[in-house]
Design a protein around this nucleic acid. Structure first.
Lengths: 207, 207
DNA sequence: GCATGATGAATGAACGTTCATTCATTGTCA
DNA sequence: TGACAATGAATGAACGTTCATTCATCATGC
């Protein structure tokens, strides 16, 4: 047993999580601009003072939500990549697949991501949590591309440009889903990214 | 002379525009969630009643801003494309260049676009104005791709997939600029899109 | 060309509502 | 019983909107 938590600590933790989930629900339903403490507490089924008790301010709760979603996204693609083994091609495929996994790419999650992104420029404290495809992911994909360049001996391919293209494509397809979730097709999206990967690395990513 | 407007009508129109510009400034500075009528009027240098006098409500003013930016974007790429002449390759190049033109791709404009996008799902009245690369642009680019397929006789290229890829890339690179305006390089961005275009249509888009 | 009444753009104090936050009180485990 | 999580009424600031009033501009009559 790692920690034997008392019943008290357990409900406290449960309430903390409930507030974060309720806030995400409220953002998805009403939009960040219309999210109020009252609406959050209504969704969570908790009393008025709870937000300030657990997070000391509404803004801190919003920060906790942003952090939660950021960490969930990052750990998701890292786990997927590591499960894929050590081959560069398999690792890149796993990252791409992870990006279109319904666990990540769904209406609620996108609503939260895009909401925080749009407020981060005027509230810089959100900045660390809005960059889904952050420096770490960029380094990872760039090094995969570099490996593919060396192995496949593609003289014309710049790993930096390849990585930038793939990441921008992932971003753009997220936006496509966000704007038109009904007409978005996950298989087509994956095919588009793999098509681009194949354009850079003809030896890999066979259809 | 098209219309001889009275001095009264001129100042009225000037105030209307001032409110729209001030609202865009306020969104860029404070974020949509923190834009209040007071802040807008402070920036515009006008009196309290002006928003409701000209737009009847704050929400209608926000709608007018969204519409303005949407129309400006659309007319910009259409003018650029038509100036490029009738050749398919030149037209696509013009659309790509237009998308990275500082007139369109700048901090203020992106702040406004992304702000409205993030609120449109909970306030559907904004929906008609948030889809920069809308159905019209998609039809245009798809038909250009179809023409390039036929002329160049690229048997393996699906014009739909090519158009989707290019549009998603443009979207993704906008997001890239929005998240990191300082480290964004317009020339690299253009090169990335042209590189992808070349992958689909090897006969065209020479570097 | 000038005087005069009509027009409606502009103003800003006031309104009711909603907001995030506080804190004295209550309830519940250890 | 002591410690602390939970409650919800109370608070004042900020919100969008209203509206009686003001006054520069315009149309009209002479």
């Amino acid at each position: 047993m790692p920690e034997a938590k008392s019943a008290r600590e357990q409900t406290k933790e449960r309430h903390r999580r409930a507030l974060i989930e309720a806030t995400a629900d409220a953002i998805a339903e009403h939009g960040l601009a219309k999210v109020s403490v009252s609406r959050i507490l209504e969704k969570a089924g908790l009393s008025r003072g709870m937000v300030n008790l657990h997070f000391s301010s509404k803004n801190n709760l919003l920060l906790a939500v942003a952090q939660q979603f950021s960490e969930d996204y990052t750990s998701h693609w890292i786990v997927a990549m590591e499960r894929a083994g050590s081959r560069a091609e398999a690792r890149l495929r796993a990252i791409i697949d992870a990006d279109f996994d319904p666990v990540v790419l769904n209406r609620r999650t996108m609503a939260v991501w895009f909401a925080f992104r749009s407020e981060a420029h005027s509230s810089p404290e959100f900045m660390p949590f809005i960059d889904s495809r952050d420096a770490k992911m960029q380094r990872t994909i760039t090094s995969i591309c570099r490996e593919l360049c060396e192995r496949g001996a593609n003289p014309g391919t710049d790993p930096q440009i390849a990585a930038l293209s793939i990441i921008a494509l992932l971003e753009g397809l997220w936006t496509d889903y966000y704007l038109h979730p009904d007409r978005f097709d996950r298989d087509t999206a994956r095919a588009v990214v793999l098509h681009t990967a194949r354009a850079f690395f003809p030896d890999s990513f066979d259809a």
